[in-house]
Design a protein around this nucleic acid. Structure first.
Lengths: 339, 339
DNA sequence: AGGTAAATCGAAACCGGTTTCGATTTACCT
DNA sequence: AGGTAAATCGAAACCGGTTTCGATTTACCT
């Protein structure tokens, strides 16, 4: 490995000047800089980030905290898409992304400890279990963080406007004439799930629609199979709903399958609306009406927030709520009775 | 930040001894070690990985090279699952994963350069375009690499046995009585796609089945919509196939939809078999018969290979081919004529 | 008590950069 | 020619660790 010392020897300048040349110091002559840059190229020089970090205390790395305690990566597609967009702005600013884990090399150590060992400049957090004490520890530290799909005053947070989305969904169904609208909930243990449920309830109340307890049924883990069984339950209700708002697209897909398997047609007999607008939504039959989250915006806004804090351009914590959009496709129609 | 120097001052030992205590040198007394460890805890000491890397030349980081030139993360689910498994063994060995990109901070620099700057100990590669000159540069370097879904003698490689999988698929269809078996190909530009096509052809030949050119139709990017249009084409053929082997599950799903939309029933009128066994495969109707890739094994084997090279336990390059499995569900049945 | 081997410890050099501040050189002026 | 300000450069200290090798201490033996 060639170092600035090798370049210094070859060019006759001091290591100090070589370093300055690379860092665009104003006190090195243009000719000198050119000399140094050229020899550096010839010698195949690449800077050593660890040496640089050691002195500057800046690692140009962002930790990525992504854990799905719920098991099999159901939320992976959403995460991937958000993080991809986050990564793009990170890279453009010169940062690299590094996965942070709880324990390393067999030793239990915690996120915060790993962040400190690696000297990350900030952390983007995407968890399903925000009660994790190791996460709390990180939250209480001085390391800049931005959290997705969660809200807390201790950190920047970026969410879709889940309540607004839920209201959008229910209003759409109501505008088609539905009055018996059920909800397959993402569960109150996840932040977006509880917000959407809250939005659903608020909207039902606002519209003056009846809401029996049996109309809210859990769809744990946002999984297709749980959507399926949730729908099966709803269809057996004496006062069967004419429309269902599912807290996630996979839940909705499961619900559609359950309806079909029970001999109901979607949307003629029962309408289903989902949430997320996953890739698949537009390909299934019937194409799924849903609420789209802007994953690209989610990622880039999270990045902007984090970097502005790292660069000290920004004080205090922001809680962003990003707008969502109703995507009308073929899975919702007016109820039979009104036709 | 507390350093070994702070601990040295507090305990009265030298920094040398403090460092040795942490690294389990045999020449520090047990009592001394305890002393040091305890004070370190009290003072909230965490080692500085950059300082350590600077002297030891070992960063305990693995670069992750994942680029999808084909655009929207179609292969993401597969990648996520493989990399998750890779990550688990990496973490257990004390490594962290870092995304490597081509350019950083606006400057174009290439993968190799970034690997060198960051001093990664190895790289796991998952690309769609293996012609990329920046990738070639990395391949020709001395940095240990393991490549997924590709084969080259210049690196360790780990693939599913794509040919065997394709043969398995075709044999299954043939065993049901099909003789007119078409193929929706992943395209020869991707390694797995071309291998599966090769397997398909070999199997057809082996079975003595006729293979008109029109029976192989491209399904670019493994996308659902391209599977759809590919199937539409096949269904309009004068000598319509009775079964279709699709190079990916999304292609297969698209094909099933196309068949349904054209008034054919799957599997009664036409059988469809996919490849990958994505999560969704078992939930769709009809549940998809497919070839399962063992993503967990893929990831862990890739990790084992890479770490054994990093640890110099291993010379030369290995080209692993992992077994695949036929998963029989409901999308394949005997052809009508034979019933 | 004196000697020897084993146990324990630390000084110094090193890894590859950055930054401060003083020294030297150069350009320009009268 | 001499003076001054601006331009250019480099010595030295520092970031936080690791490793070699020599020095000192301790344990144990006769």
């Amino acid at each position: 490995m060639t170092t600035i010392y090798d370049i210094a020897k070859r060019t006759g300048y001091s290591p100090t000047t070589v370093s300055k040349a690379f860092n665009n110091y104003s006190d090195v002559r243009e000719k000198t800089r050119q000399d140094i840059i050229r020899t550096a190229q010839e010698m195949g020089y690449v800077p050593n980030s660890h040496a640089r970090t050691l002195t500057t205390k800046k690692s140009w790395t962002i930790g990525v905290l992504f854990i799905e305690s719920t098991g099999v990566g159901i939320r992976h597609p959403f995460f991937s898409s958000v993080i991809e967009s986050f990564k793009q702005v990170a890279v453009s600013k010169g940062y690299a992304l590094m996965f942070i884990s709880k324990d390393v090399g067999g030793k239990q150590s915690g996120y915060l400890e790993n962040c400190r060992i690696r000297g990350v400049d900030g952390v983007v957090v995407f968890l399903s279990d925000y009660e994790d004490p190791y996460f709390q520890e990180l939250l209480d530290s001085a390391i800049p963080t931005v959290i997705l799909d969660f809200e807390t005053p201790k950190s920047h947070t970026v969410c879709s406007n889940n309540m607004a989305g839920a209201i959008l969904a229910v209003d759409h169904l109501a505008s088609l004439g539905h009055r018996k609208i059920a909800h397959i909930s993402g569960g109150v243990s996840t932040f977006p799930g509880s917000e959407r449920e809250r939005g659903y309830k608020a909207s039902m109340k606002q519209l003056g629609l009846e809401l029996p307890d049996s109309y809210i049924v859990p769809g744990p883990y946002y999984s297709l199979e749980n959507g399926y069984s949730a729908m099966k339950g709803l269809l057996q209700l004496p006062d069967r709903p004419t429309a269902v708002f599912a807290s996630g697209d996979l839940l909705a897909l499961g619900a559609v399958m359950a309806a079909k398997d029970s001999g109901f047609s979607v949307p003629t007999d029962i309408s289903v609306i989902g949430y997320d607008d996953i890739d698949l939504a537009k390909y299934v039959t019937p194409a799924l009406t849903t609420i789209r989250q802007d994953t690209v915006l989610l990622g880039s806004q999270a990045a902007d927030l984090l970097f502005s804090t790292i660069d000290k351009e920004h004080e205090g914590m922001e809680a962003l709520q990003l707008p969502v959009e109703l995507i009308v496709r073929d899975s919702c129609a007016p109820p039979r009775s009104v036709e």
